[in-house]
Each structure stands twice: as structure tokens, then as C-alpha cells.
Write a protein that binds this DNA or RNA. Structure first.
Lengths: 122, 122
DNA sequence: TGCTTGATTCGATAACCATCAATACAGGGC
DNA sequence: GCCCTGTATTGATGGTTATCGAATCAAGCA
């Protein structure tokens, strides 16, 4: 659980960045589906939103009280977001800080709407 | 099952288009999560990809043979994509044609990466 | 009207998953 | 070393979902 632990081999998105307008292979579809599935839960979306709306990093101790769920549940959801390559975290003493993996959301967005990304890169 | 049946009241995305960088309400998160959950299955992603990669509309009879799944399973997945507001369909005689709902994927992409959309609109 | 083809829906089933309490792990202070 | 706080993991549980075969619906044709 450090900055080095999320490598491209672990990031299911960075390994491939196809567009939906090109036919997906079974492997590409599985990798992308895993990322979207991570977003397919309201709690995880709200966690992601809370993390994304703060500049820099957010401590778990700030995230957990925002939900009427148990601490293990929040931890479990954060783990799924990590495994999906959308967030990363670092422990500093007792506290654990989370942040959005740079470019992860943009890459997913580009899959859904490749023309939009192509336009912005000009 | 016609062009008129997918209205904004039925489309879970069009009703709201927040950005992840703004804190999501419980309702917004539920609506968005439903759309992402529809994408969170490899079969549905590949179906969406096949539909998106064809200009115009695609007949179910072309989609089903591309998978090693039963026809009811493909039909079930297409229904989930319809309910998520990502595709729509129309029956013409025996055949049923599907297409991507215009703007649906772009709106989802904008949730993930609002700066990208803002740039392309300039 | 009866039969055929294509597509959707239904119901059962096994696999998957969100949630919790309990437990384990990580770190800090005395 | 002991105790405390914070966080992650474990295992059980009830709810959800992908898949299939059967049934139903929709349309076309003789």
C-alpha cells in the first residue's frame, strides 16, 4: 500500500485503452468491465466523488463518517476502487490517505467518448 | 419498444449530469451507478461496442451469433442496456434493430472527466 | 388459421456481492 | 511491553445477478 504498488500490471485500465467504437476483444472487455463495475455502486461513486472533490489527498477518517455504513464496509469499497486502479493510498502513521490515480478517470472517459478526447488534444 | 419510449424520465443519465469532482448526492450516485453498472459486464460492453462500431443501427440477429451465449441471455443484456438509457431499439417486422442513444456515452464520459468536455466545447 | 422465424419474458439456479461483527494488522505513546 | 486508535481483512449472511431452457409474444407467409 504505497505509491509504488499500483503499477501498470495492476492497473486494469492503463494496460489497454480501447475505444467502444472499435470492437472489443474478450480480454479488453473484461478489463474495462472490471473498472466500470467498480463505479457501478452508489457508495463507491460517492467515495470517489469525495476524494476527487478535495485537492490532494483525503484521509479515510474523513470519508467514513460521511456514510451511514460501518468502517469495514467503507474499507472494503476503497479496496475495490484501488483494485480497479481508480484510487491509490498511502499510510502515514495511523492515518491512511487516498487520492485519485492521475489520468485514470480520463482514460475511462476516453473509452466512452474518444472523439471528445481527440478534440481536447488538438 | 419504440423511439418514443426512452424519454428523459426513463433515462437515468439525462435527468442529471453531475461531475465526480462535485460531491454527489445519494440520488445522483444511485442514478449514475446504475448506468456504470450496466457497463460493468464484459458481455454488455462487447454488445455496446458492436453496436457503436456500426454506422446506424444493428439487428439483434447480427449481435447474437457473435457470442457463445444463448439468445435469451443476449436479449436480457440488451434489455439492461436499454434500461440504463445507453441504447434504444425498434422492431421492424420480425427483426429488432438497436442503436446507441445519441449523447448517452458522451454524458457519462463528461461525468468522469468534465475538463475534457469543457475543452471540446470551446 | 396454422406454421415458422425472430425476439422478449419467465422462472429456476448457481455464482456473485454489499454489509456487518469479529478479528487482525499498523502505528503511536507511555 | 502494554494499551490505545485507526484501518484492513475475514467469514457469515442475505440480497443481487448472469445464465439457461421453457414459455410467450410479434411478425410474416401459405
Amino acid at each position: 500500500m504505497s505509491n509504488q504498488e499500483t503499477t501498470e500490471a495492476d492497473d486494469p485500465i492503463a494496460a489497454c485503452c480501447p475505444a467502444l467504437t472499435a470492437p472489443l476483444s474478450t480480454e479488453q472487455a473484461a478489463a474495462l468491465a472490471a473498472a466500470f463495475k467498480a463505479l457501478g455502486d452508489p457508495v463507491r461513486l460517492r467515495l470517489l466523488s469525495l476524494i476527487a472533490s478535495q485537492p490532494g489527498q483525503v484521509c479515510v477518517c474523513e470519508l467514513t463518517p460521511a456514510f451511514e455504513l460501518s468502517q469495514p464496509t467503507i474499507s472494503h469499497h476503497l479496496k475495490l476502487l484501488r483494485q480497479a486502479g481508480l484510487v491509490d493510498c498511502e499510510r502515514r502513521g495511523t492515518w491512511v490517505y487516498y487520492w485519485i490515480v492521475p489520468g485514470a478517470l480520463e482514460r475511462l472517459a476516453a473509452v466512452l467518448s474518444p472523439q471528445t478526447l481527440a478534440t481536447s488534444s488538438r
